[in-house]
């Protein structure tokens, strides 16, 4: 029962702040509510006993990526935003309907396929340190190629981001 209460509480926080991200016109509030949403997702991982992932989620997303977002939004200083949302009643209705439709399709498919399975499956409790050991073993054996590729990607991104941020405008420089 406590598990259910904590799940619904966390779920409420995540969904409410996610909705705030897309519905609030001021981008600074969007960024802050996204940070709240990330923290909520970290809490959800914590309740799923994925402690390591939860910590990484906090450090990487809530602690680094979102701080970057907030910093950039603050630097732009967009206080009065013109046309925050797309124009036209038809396009708005269409887009909203599309999103709701996709959600109901996924939810319907899930509820059909999970009618028996669902809650019967209980989470197997494991020794946490051991699971981290297995995780790293997996990372360095089965997924070692992807891991190396990720390293190359990150180096490329560092170079690219610095080049972009330092660029004086390329061939179209004023």
């Amino acid at each position: 029962m406590t598990e259910a209460i904590s799940f619904y509480l966390i779920q409420f926080i995540i969904l409410a702040s996610a909705l705030a991200v897309v519905l609030v016109p001021n981008p600074i509030y969007s960024a802050i509510s996204l940070a709240v949403s990330m923290t909520g997702i970290a809490a959800l991982f914590f309740s799923l006993e994925a402690y390591f992932i939860a910590g990484v989620q906090l450090v990487v997303y809530a602690g680094a990526v979102m701080v970057l977002f907030v910093m950039v939004v603050m630097l732009f200083d967009l206080k009065k935003e013109k046309r925050a949302f797309s124009r036209g009643t038809l396009s708005r209705v269409l887009k909203t309907t599309l999103s709701v439709l996709i959600f109901s399709m996924i939810a319907g498919a899930l509820s059909m396929s999970f009618s028996e399975l669902g809650s019967g499956d209980s989470i197997a409790k494991e020794d946490i340190t051991r699971s981290i050991k297995e995780l790293s073993a997996l990372l360095y054996t089965k997924y070692v190629f992807a891991f190396e590729a990720l390293a190359i990607l990150l180096v490329m991104v560092i170079v690219g981001a610095i080049a972009l941020a330092k660029a004086k405008g390329g061939t179209h420089a004023k």
Binding site: I14, A18, L44, L48, V100, I102, I106, A107, F114, G118
Partner: peptide, 16 residues
Amino acid sequence: IGLNHYLILSAALFCI
């Protein structure tokens, strides 16, 4: 709480 709850939460978040 079962797997389906998490999946539906995930779907909702994705659609948002």
